[in-house]
Amino acid sequence: MKNLGYYNGEYDLIESMKIPMNDRVCYFGDGVYDATYSRNHNIFALDEHIDRFFNSAGLLQIKIPYTKDELKALLKEMVKKVDSGEQFVYWQVTRGTGMRNHAFPGEDVKANIWIILKPLEIKDMSQKIKLITLEDTRFLHCNIKTLNLLPNVIAAQKTEEAGCQEGIFHRGDRVTECAHSNVSIIKDGIFKTAPADNLILPGIARAHIIKMCKKFDIPVNETPFTLKELMDADEVIVTSSGQFCMVACEIDGKPVGGRASEIVKKLQDALLDEFLEETK
């Protein structure tokens, strides 16, 4: 298949799949998701993504109808059905299907599992990106990878209209994260990234770059940083599952970074090597 959609045991081309109108995702975005990439039909960092997925569901009291091992086995089986070995691997769980009602359905209603697979390669980390800053108007549970993404959609549209590749959220003067990614800075040889509190999603790529910093004895500071620190940083780095370590060259039309390229290259090479090794 060129791509694949899956819903509760049934699968077909994504464009051929149909979903019940009463799936709670339609009315409430009542569910959580996770995503990563595969190469050679091998899924990257699957254990970590599955752990985060189950954590997000647990925080919303959604009971996933599979064990972790069962869901991993299902995803590994599904990626082999898509022709391309390089895929975007996405899955979500919604609370179930029932007549519209804000309160949770009864315990007899089972959660729904979705999987979407499509050919896609990871980003080329040699390309620098342009960013804009946006006031963070999302709710206070950003640590849950919820399907309620309307603020992120609006931010993505503003970013595109500005001719940029990503938007950086801030609450007042505190930088939180990006619309689709985590954002970190390098200053005076120190890697600084926002703490994994309720205002950011604890990114898997963020965890991997922190691990690489520690491997290379690059100091890591997980405390809040400000918009001024962002603009004055030696480098501004955006991380996500498909773009392990992208470097910014511009924020709000002003040039940034470019003063710690050796550190960046070391991290990029190490992260790419890790990906290639795990998915060979």
Rank of each mutant, 00 (worst) to 15 (best):
residue 223 T to K: 14
residue 43 I to Q: 07
residue 55 N to T: 14
residue 154 I to W: 02
residue 120 L to D: 11
residue 116 I to G: 04
residue 164 C to W: 01
residue 98 G to D: 14
residue 89 V to Y: 02
residue 51 D to G: 06
residue 41 H to R: 12
residue 221 N to I: 04
residue 172 G to C: 08
residue 266 K to G: 02
residue 251 I to D: 00
residue 196 A to K: 12
residue 130 K to H: 05
residue 254 K to D: 10
residue 109 V to H: 00
residue 64 I to M: 12
residue 13 L to F: 14
residue 236 V to G: 00
residue 29 G to N: 03
residue 60 L to S: 09
residue 201 L to T: 04
residue 171 R to M: 14
residue 201 L to G: 00
residue 247 V to R: 02
residue 243 Q to F: 03
residue 213 C to R: 05
residue 180 H to W: 03
residue 16 S to A: 13
residue 91 W to L: 05
residue 276 L to M: 14
residue 3 N to C: 01
residue 219 P to E: 02
residue 61 Q to L: 15
residue 188 D to Q: 11
residue 168 I to G: 06
residue 78 M to R: 13
residue 204 I to T: 12
residue 155 A to Y: 00
residue 269 D to M: 04
residue 194 A to W: 02
residue 178 C to F: 07
residue 178 C to Q: 08
residue 247 V to C: 07
residue 125 M to K: 01
residue 225 F to L: 03
residue 21 M to T: 10
residue 206 R to L: 13
residue 37 Y to N: 03
residue 33 Y to E: 06
residue 142 C to T: 01
residue 233 A to Y: 04
residue 156 A to T: 07
residue 4 L to V: 06
residue 1 M to S: 13
residue 223 T to Y: 08
residue 37 Y to A: 01
residue 201 L to W: 09
residue 202 P to T: 13
residue 231 M to W: 05
residue 174 R to Y: 14
residue 165 Q to K: 03
residue 235 E to M: 06
residue 246 M to F: 04
residue 276 L to W: 13
residue 224 P to E: 00
residue 13 L to W: 10
residue 274 E to N: 12
residue 177 E to R: 13
residue 256 V to Y: 06
residue 268 Q to F: 06
residue 140 L to T: 12
residue 121 E to P: 01
residue 241 S to C: 10
residue 105 P to L: 12
residue 71 L to V: 05
residue 218 I to R: 00
residue 118 K to L: 10
residue 75 L to Q: 06
residue 41 H to I: 06
residue 252 D to S: 05
residue 242 G to R: 02
